[in-house]
Amino acid sequence: MRRRPSDWRLKEMTAMSGSSLLGATPATVALDASLEAYARRFRERPGRAKPLSPQLRRLEAESIFIMREVAASFEKPVMLYSIGKDSSVMLHLALKAFWPSPPPFSFLHVDTTWKFSEMIVFRDLIMKKLGLNLLVHVNEEGLRRGISPYASGSGLHTQVMKTEGLRQALDAYGFDAAFGGARRDEEKSRAKERIFSFRSQSHGWDPKNQRPELWTLYNTRKAPGESIRVFPISNWTELDIWSYLAEEEIPIVPLYFSAQRPTIERGGQIFMVDDDRTPLAPGEAPQMRGVRFRTLGCYPLTAAVESPAADIDAVIAEMLTATTSERSGRLIDHDESGSMEKKKREGYF
C-alpha cells in the first residue's frame, strides 16, 4: 500500500468519522471480519438460502459466459480492479465463474495515488483474504511531473494518471485482453461499445470500425500487440448492480454508506477531505456531514451526496427515487459533450 501524507488534523477527523488510517478501530475490525467471512464462502461453499432472482441469474450467467470465453481464448488476460462496486461485482463473478479453480488471470489496479484511503485499505485486505495477487501500477513519470487533480485539473490528471497509466501497465505486462467494469447504461458512447471491444496496438478505439457482435459469438481474434477490452457487465444497470450486491451479500467499500465525514463545498458539490492534500481557503475548515458516494474514484474528483442511507437497503430505496444519474458526481464526464468518447478513443476504460 502506498503511504500517504497525514497530519494531526486528518488523524483527528478520521478518528471522529470512524474511518481510520491508524490501525485497529471498530470499523476496521468489522471490515476484517466481513471480508474473512466472504473469503470463507468460496472455501466452504455453504450454498444459498434463497435462489437468486431470475433476472440477476440471467445477467450473472451471461457475465460468467463472457469471462470463460476470455479465459479459453487469450494467452494473458487481466481484470481491471478499481475497488468500486462494479469491480466488486466483477471480482465476485470471476470467483464464481471458474470455481473450484481460482480466476485464471491477474488483477490490476491503476492507482492514481488520489483514491480515498478507505478504498486502499479495502483493496489490500480483500485481495489478501481471497489469496489473490493484485498488481498495482502507478504512473511514476506522471508523479514526477507533479500531475495532480488540483494542480493539473481533472482532464490532464485523468489522462496521465489513469489512461496513460493503464496503457503503461498493459504494455509492461503484455496483457492481450483486459476486463473492464463499464456498463452500457452509464453513458451514451458506452451504450454502443461492444462486449469484446478491439483495440489497436496504441490502445485506440475506433467507434466507426467496430466488429459486428452477433448472438454470443464473440470474435477474439487479433494480431500480436493488439488487444481486446472485454466488458462482462455491459448489460447490467446500476439497479442490477445494487440488487446483486444485496442478494449476494458482497462486501463493498464503506464509503458507499452514509457516515459523518469531513467535507468541503466546491462549485455547489460536496467533496470529502480525505487527507491533507486538499487545498483549503484561509480560514476554511472541513465540516462534518452525513454523506455517502454513489460512485468512487479520485477523492478530489468524486462528489458526495448528503444522505442518511447507512445500509444497502436504504441505498436502493434512495436510488429508486433518484433524480440524477450516478455519473453526475464524476467531474471528468462534464468537460464537454462527447468527452467520454474522446477519452475512450485514447484508451480510457
Binding site: 440477476l56 437497503d313 436502493i316 429508486l320
Partner: peptide, 17 residues
C-alpha cells in the same frame, strides 16, 4: 438481507426480461 424495498424492486424483475 431482503427488505421490502429490494423485494418490491425484484418483484418487477420476476416478470422477466
Amino acid at each position: 438481507m431482503t427488505s421490502a424495498v429490494t423485494a418490491r424492486h425484484l418483484a418487477s424483475a420476476e416478470k422477466g426480461l
